[in-house]
């Protein structure tokens, strides 16, 4: 069943590392409406940081580009989509494996997707070589919507 959307926003920004902190703070500020715990907020920030960093480093290895973040609230859960229009991922199964990195030369640990999966409830990736990558993550917030609908 598709859950009702209660609030949403979309932002577009240039794919530069300077925007990583900005991106995770914006999503955390939006998620604050669900009254999450500090731990939950930190987990959301970390997962967003991973996806945005991937878009910047891997999505656009040698050109400028844009990252789009779309966020929505569905009663007691948050959905975040981090999208780039970069190179895409050839072998998605391999990319999701812990410790796999295509850029050991940049001292990457290959743990980004593992961190996202650990900190969020679901992570799904849509990618097309040459067209880009969209990472959709959801997280249920334990406190639920303050003063909102009853949960069942």
């Amino acid at each position: 069943m598709k859950m009702e959307v209660t609030n949403y926003f979309t932002i577009t920004f240039p794919a530069t590392s300077r925007n990583e902190a900005f991106a995770r703070v914006v999503v955390a500020a939006f998620a604050a409406q669900l009254d999450p715990t500090l731990d939950e907020l930190n987990e959301i920030k970390t997962a967003v940081s991973e996806a945005v960093t991937n878009a910047i480093i891997h999505g656009y290895p040698d050109r400028e580009g844009e990252v789009v973040i779309s966020c929505s609230l569905h009663r007691d859960s948050l959905e975040v989509i981090v999208k780039d229009s970069g190179v895409g991922i050839d072998n998605l199964e391999q990319a999701r494996e812990p410790l796999f990195t295509s850029r050991p030369d940049l001292e990457r640990a290959g743990m980004g997707f593992t961190v996202m999966e650990e900190f969020m409830d679901s992570v799904s990736i849509e990618t097309k070589p040459g067209q880009g990558t969209a990472v959709t993550m959801t997280k249920k917030i334990s406190a639920g919507e303050p003063g909102g609908n009853e949960r069942n």
């Binding site: 995770r24 940081s49 991973e50 960093t53 940049l106 001292e107 990457r108 640990a109 743990m111 980004g112």
Partner: peptide
């Protein structure tokens, strides 16, 4: 106050 996998990479290096 914050660290992600980029931090892991630097420390591992």
């Amino acid at each position: 106050s914050f660290m992600d996998s980029s931090g892991l990479g630097v420390l591992l290096g």
